Amino acid sequence: MSKGDGTRQSAPADHLPALHLPVLYTQVMEGLQVKEDGTYLDGTFGRGGHARGVLQRLGPGGRLLLMDKDPEAIAHAGQTFAGDARVAIRRGSFASMAQWDETAGGLDGVLLDLGVSSPQLDVAERGFSFGKDGPLDMRMDPESGESAAEWIARADEREIADVLWTYGEEKQSRRIARAIVARRATQPFTRTGDLAAVIASVMPRGDKIHPATRSFQAIRIHINRELSDLETGLDAALERLKPGGRLAVISFHSLEDRIVKRFINTHAKAPPANRRLPALDTFVPTLRAIGDAQKGEADEIAANARARSAVLRVAEKLAVDA
């Protein structure tokens, strides 16, 4: 699964350059309801397709805050928006947005486009893709934390199986973990192609997707702490959003979308009553869901395969009386 910063040739939308149209672009812009003098944070800059759309709608008094773990994405942001006083850039996970002084005055919108960007997938040296042989890395920030190769070298069989099952929903997780541990006893894993081949060798035939798809997804999510960052980032976004501010999140697999859906529902809907328990304080909603989950239209999916699994959810922060 990948994040929606996919590149495709297409007629431009809202004058966005045709060479780079991210998934669900129109829906995201409609969901954010960008105000000319607002302050907006794109927590997953990637290559900036959504960010450019927001910036187009900002006036001289507007503000665009950009974050990304990936140093290459941050370098690209610096080159793209150099000299624009409306833009501030910070390298790091969106989970830390509440620690950024630029957000202290409140945000009118937050965008999170989850998963892996097209450049990360397309460059073999980043080690995200089983389809392109490269170093077994998978870190969104290659200068921080443990690489996939290092984790696979030290994790025991049970931990590997648990990760594959929990984050990849891989039914053959135990069989794959057993094969990985057996093979690394004689030769360490250092390449994506090698790991993909070992996984494929123990998988039953007939699956429509590549046999390593779920395992690579699971390892990537674990290495980058993606789901824990998402949970922390959603809390931080709610904290920093102004009343009336919008949260827009694009997910690419069910684990992410489940977290986002549950977060919005928890803050938008009162929990079901339990007659056996004493009545709790009156529920006060702090979010309002804006419509239902949105997916790409057929023409977008036909032009950009990475839009097929994208799901957008939008919510608005409500004013709460003191």
Rank of each mutant, 00 (worst) to 15 (best):
L121K: 00
V123E: 15
V123H: 10
A124V: 10
E125T: 15
G127M: 00
F128G: 00
F130I: 00
G134I: 02
P135R: 10
D137W: 09
M138T: 13
M138Y: 10
D141V: 11
D141L: 07
G145I: 01
E146H: 08
E146I: 14
S147T: 15
S147H: 13
S147I: 06
A148P: 14
A149E: 08
A153D: 14
A155Y: 04
D156L: 07
E157L: 04
R158H: 12
E159W: 05
E159P: 02
I160A: 07
A161M: 10
A161R: 04
V163Y: 02
L164Q: 01
T166Y: 06
T166F: 05
T166N: 12
Y167K: 01
R178H: 08
I180E: 01
I180D: 02
V181S: 02
R183A: 14
R184F: 00
A185T: 13
A185K: 15
T186E: 12
T186Y: 09
P188F: 06
P188W: 09
F189W: 03
F189V: 03
R191Y: 03
D194A: 08
L195M: 12
A196Q: 11
A197G: 06
V198R: 10
I199G: 06
A200K: 10
V202R: 11
R205W: 12
G206D: 07
T213S: 06
